[in-house]
């Protein structure tokens, strides 16, 4: 087993473990911190796939910005209740049932897709590098890209306008 495989397994265990901890930890702030760990290990996977740009953007956008906003909200709401109110039995049962069936559907849908059968390329391929990504974005997907950038710009302008009003 090469060092890449070793890293892959470590990262996988870390990803799944921290993702489970997101669900199982009682304190919402701890959940968010575990979610950040999850994002980091996913970024590690991106690096293994030689997609450094995606890895770092994942960290900047998700771990660096969105999770900070999550933390803001949770910290300000002060959710440190001594104990969450107990849910009813049938509610728990329904939750397990619906969650399980969702997983079943997902597995069934993804089982036979083409991407599952393809060999995963480790360390090679340049699809995630910034040059090739830029080429794809600005040649093949130029219209959606520009539309989304206009969307973001309008959101920003709107935020400034709201900020100016008060």
């Amino acid at each position: 087993m090469g060092i890449t495989q070793l890293l892959f397994w470590i990262l996988t265990i870390l990803t799944l473990g921290s993702a489970l901890m997101v669900i199982f930890s009682k304190n919402p702030v701890h959940s968010i911190l575990w979610l950040i760990v999850t994002f980091f290990s996913i970024s590690g996977h991106y690096v293994l796939l030689n997609a450094q740009f995606l890895a770092i953007v994942n960290i900047i956008v998700y771990a660096g910005a969105i999770m900070v906003l999550f933390l803001f909200v949770v910290m300000l709401m002060n959710l440190n209740m001594p104990a969450a109110p107990l849910k009813k039995k049938w509610l728990k049962f329904a939750g397990v049932l619906s969650g399980g069936s969702l997983m079943l559907v997902l597995i069934a849908a993804l089982k036979d897709t083409e991407s599952m059968r393809r060999e995963v390329l480790m360390q090679t391929g340049d699809i995630g590098l910034i040059n090739s990504l830029g080429m794809v974005l600005f040649k093949d997907y130029i219209l959606p890209f520009e539309i989304s950038s206009v969307l973001f710009l309008s959101a920003m302008v709107g935020a400034v306008v709201i900020g100016k009003k008060t």
Binding site: F53, I56, V57, I59, I60, A63, G64, A65, V68
Partner: peptide, 11 residues
């Protein structure tokens, strides 16, 4: 971008 990533974690 790496620098920005780390700086954004400084928070």
């Amino acid at each position: 971008l790496y620098i920005f990533g780390v700086v954004s974690l400084g928070v």
